[in-house]
Design a binder for these strands. Structure first.
Lengths: 351, 351
DNA sequence: GGTCAAAATGATAGCGCTGTCATTAACAAG
DNA sequence: CTTGTTAATGACAGCGCTATCATTTTGACC
């Protein structure tokens, strides 16, 4: 067969043979030839420029820009066993609290030449294990996970991968490797104390059916009981949280008998929904219904009234997770394998 | 179970040379040996199971699960020149309209065995070119871009990469390759007509300093002029948009003299901020201030009053972009290279 | 000029997989 | 019993890069 089958998809713009470049992508070898050096020198010029003489460096750089060379990190990664890529698994990127954390995480990593590959574990159709497997196939240098609960198969895969792992959004004394997060238990306790201290006698909760949210709620309710607050109403909503569910949740609490009191929501979004429902019904906030959110998302300070909430320092969590991972990847010693970024109850207008 | 490996997880102390990782990763060869077949057969069992006899397949699968083999897609990609990875560049993942689109885009691609690598172009510190370059180094099989305006260097890189490209969130008769989006011009026109038809005589805008938002605003204002609506007030805010900026924007419009009228915001988030500011000031919506958002994000229907807005079908855009890319990657013919997913003005309670 | 260490560069051998044949097995038809 | 055809499997050569070690060049110093 005389046909070349290099590019089965039709180019549209230009056919082969046009410019200096024949058929395929430029390789190191081509650059080396043009610069009159060996391939390894070009490789060094790219990765350890200080190990190459200034004149050579210049020749190489000229050859690179002349050819429009773009390194092939697949080949590089295969040879060096370093992909300069880090994977991250979050429940959903369409949830701002995770997206924001990822933004800071990626940004930090980018500064050090790493790329982040994002995976969403939120789909029930796709097991976390198959996601993890797909991700590990690309040999990331490290991986970030959300939460500390993983199936035995996942743990096995992670251990087998022998790469640094950082778990986030939770805390555990026995991390797989590293954990950067905060204590949902302490949040539950402190929110309960906060509520009790302000004298609320009736408490409602709107919580997503999310392990961590449920845990905060459970702890809070238990503590509340100890404070003598026993009139509680619970509404559970399926993920993903949105304003509608917050509105509906509040409506249901009301219908169940919560006349006045405070409502603790498992996210600011739900809280904003609850707040809106109060508004729509003409209920005074916080006089009749007080509301506490979770997350301290950017909008929390700007609702009306401004939302009282639990602040999680997501930028810091993202950055600290990135730094910890980088340190482990570089083999630098780490002071702590368990990093608590804490939280803070922010009291604004809704309580 | 021939587990000869030790427990390196403690490590971090091992110096270079000491292959704390990867040195002992299971390879195809090991699986092949255990299954008593050649490596290529294992490869086929994985990638084209129908080309392998049932018995062999079973042997191989047993060997795979015994060894805990995880394929190395770097090696596979290098050899086959197919990475089963698609890159996507969005301005910001912490902006739900993009995050959501990406969610649907990724989901579709995942179903076909592709992984998405996300890049954010929003940082001024990092040029789009360097981002693109970093991404192309990983040899994605295709790439999604946000917008249709790219620097000459970026265009060169993209053309040089010789992979399918889909541009989104805009429309152009001359896409680099494919474009899946909607017309900002038509939105500007229709919103203007909508506003004029309802008899608003005073119009304010709160727009992010984003090329597409500015363009919609410009077109709208021009058309409005033709409708004889000339009392206009414009506020421009820096990205990223948030509720605070919407509130401040509305405050500024009011201060500049917009007594009553309609305000067109470049995003639902800004609109929600504007709405909240009205609420805080006791202004009646829509009687005194009418508000139109953009995007139709999930919360738009649930604000109080519910937000009138321009709906963009993000799930569809994500899916269509994925399908188009998949078709191009597989070399399947495409009916259209320019796909308009349209938009829709949704009238709710704020107008 | 000679010596030696450091700097600069290069040759070689893979990394773990798949494309491309070539080979063998299995089996129906002549 | 050929012959031809398809199914199943394998040998081998890379893909484009970097680790490793070898070699050459440079230059500081006596």
């Amino acid at each position: 067969m005389a046909r070349t089958r290099n590019h089965p998809r039709e180019g549209g713009t230009r056919r082969r043979g046009g410019s200096s470049r024949a058929g395929d992508a430029v390789t190191l070898e081509e650059v080396a030839r043009l610069a009159g050096v060996s391939t390894i020198t070009v490789s060094r010029a790219l990765n350890q420029p200080d190990k190459v003489a200034a004149g050579t460096l210049e020749k190489v750089n000229r050859a690179i820009s002349q050819t429009g060379y773009v390194p092939n990190l697949l080949a590089g990664g295969l040879a060096s066993k370093k992909t300069r890529m880090v994977a991250a698994i979050v429940p959903s990127i369409a949830n701002l609290v995770y997206a924001e954390t990822m933004q800071y995480f990626s940004k930090r990593l980018n500064e050090f030449g790493y790329q982040v590959m994002l995976g969403e574990s939120g789909y029930p159709e796709r097991s976390e294990q198959s996601l993890l497997s797909a991700i590990l196939s690309r040999r990331p240098d490290g991986i970030l996970l959300t939460g500390v609960n993983h199936s035995p198969e996942c743990r096995r895969l992670l251990i087998g991968a022998r790469i640094p792992v950082v778990e986030t959004w939770d805390l555990t004394p026995t991390p797989l490797d590293l954990v950067v997060g905060f204590s949902h238990e302490r949040i539950g306790l402190e929110v309960a104390d906060f509520i009790a201290a302000r004298g609320y006698r009736r408490v409602g909760t709107i919580s997503a059916s999310d392990r961590r949210a449920q845990y905060r709620e459970k702890i809070m309710l238990e503590r509340l009981q100890r404070h003598g607050v026993t009139e509680t109403y619970r509404v559970q909503i399926p993920v993903p949280s949105d304003m509608r569910k917050g509105r509906d949740g509040l409506a249901e609490l009301l219908q169940r008998g919560l006349g006045t009191g405070v409502v603790f929501c498992s996210s600011d979004t739900l809280a904003q929904g609850a707040l809106t429902e109060c508004l729509a019904r003409g209920l005074k906030v916080p006089e009749q219904i007080a509301i506490i959110g979770f997350g301290d998302q950017s909008f929390a300070a700007d609702t009306f009234p401004a939302l009282s909430t639990v602040r999680i320092d997501r930028p810091r969590m993202g950055r600290v997770a990135a730094d910890a991972l980088l340190a482990r990847i570089d083999g630098r010693p780490l002071e702590e394998h368990v990093i608590d970024v804490g939280f803070q109850i922010i009291e604004r207008g809704t309580t």
